[in-house]
Amino acid sequence: MKKLIFTIAAICGIQGGSILVAQDIKSSKVPAAVTAALMKKYPVATKITWEKEKGNYEGNWGGKSGEDMSVTFTPAGAFVEQVEAIKTSALPATVTKYLQAHYKGVKVDEAGKATAANGTITYEAIVKHKEVVFDAQGNFLKVE
C-alpha cells in the first residue's frame, strides 16, 4: 500500500504549484499522539513503517510487502483514513466492468478499499500510474 500511496503522491499530487511527495520517516520522528492513536485503533499492528504526506502521518504494515494496511492520522492523532490492499478480483463487479471498458487490456497494478474517518468507503485501482477511484457501489468518481 505504501507503493500505492507514494505512486499517487509522486505522479498525481500537485497542489498549490508544488509537487507533494510522501517522505519515509523514522518512527522516532512520529508524534507520540499519532503512535498512540494507531496502537489504540490497531493494537495488533507490528513492523510499522512511516511516511509523512501532506502534513499527515501514514503508517503501513502487514503482508509480505509490509504494505497491506495503510492508515493516516493528523499530527494531533486524529484518524483520517485507512486503506486496505485487496486483490483486484475483490473489486466490485461494476469497477471491473468500468476498467475493462476504459482501460482495455491494461493490468490493474494495485487495488485498495479505503474507509474515511466518517465511514465513507471508496475503492481505488492503480492503472497506468493513475489512481482510479470509485464509490462504495463501484460507480466511477475520479482519476487522480
Rank of each mutant, 00 (worst) to 15 (best):
G66K: 01
K52S: 14
L91P: 07
S28R: 11
G66S: 05
I14R: 15
I19A: 13
G119E: 09
E67T: 07
A78C: 06
V108K: 05
K107D: 09
E67N: 13
G55E: 02
K142L: 01
G63E: 01
E53M: 08
E84L: 08
K128G: 05
A101Y: 14
E67I: 01
Y103L: 05
K3S: 15
T74A: 09
W50Y: 10
N139H: 15
H129D: 12
T7I: 11
K54S: 13
S65H: 02
V143R: 10
E84G: 01
K87M: 10
M1G: 13
Y103P: 08
Y123V: 04
D68M: 10
W50I: 00
W61L: 00
K41G: 07
W61G: 00
I48T: 13
E81M: 04
Q15Y: 09
I11Q: 14
G55R: 00
E110M: 15
K40N: 14
L141G: 01
S89T: 14
K40I: 03
G63P: 04
G77S: 06
A10N: 12
A90P: 11
T74V: 03
S18V: 06
G55W: 00
G13W: 02
K26T: 15
M69E: 02
S70C: 10
A10L: 10
Y98S: 07
L141E: 08
P92T: 05
Q23K: 11
V34R: 00
T46I: 00
W50H: 03
E58N: 11
T46Y: 03
I19N: 15
E51W: 07
E144H: 10
A78G: 08
A93G: 11
G59F: 02
K104T: 13
S89V: 05
A125E: 03
S70Q: 09
M69N: 11
S27A: 12
I19H: 09
V127R: 03
L99M: 08
A10P: 08
V21S: 10
T46H: 05
G59Y: 00
V132I: 08
T94G: 04
G112I: 06
K47P: 03
G138M: 03
I126M: 06
T120V: 12
I25G: 07
A114E: 07
G112Q: 08
K128S: 12
H129L: 01
D109V: 08
F140K: 03
I14M: 12
S70M: 08
Q82E: 11
K107P: 04
F73S: 00
V143F: 00
M69K: 09
I121V: 15
E51D: 15
F134Y: 10
G138S: 10
E144G: 09
A9L: 09
A125I: 05
A136W: 01
Y103M: 09
T94D: 07
E53D: 08
V95N: 05
T74R: 02
T46W: 00
K52Q: 15
S65F: 01
G59S: 04
A9V: 05
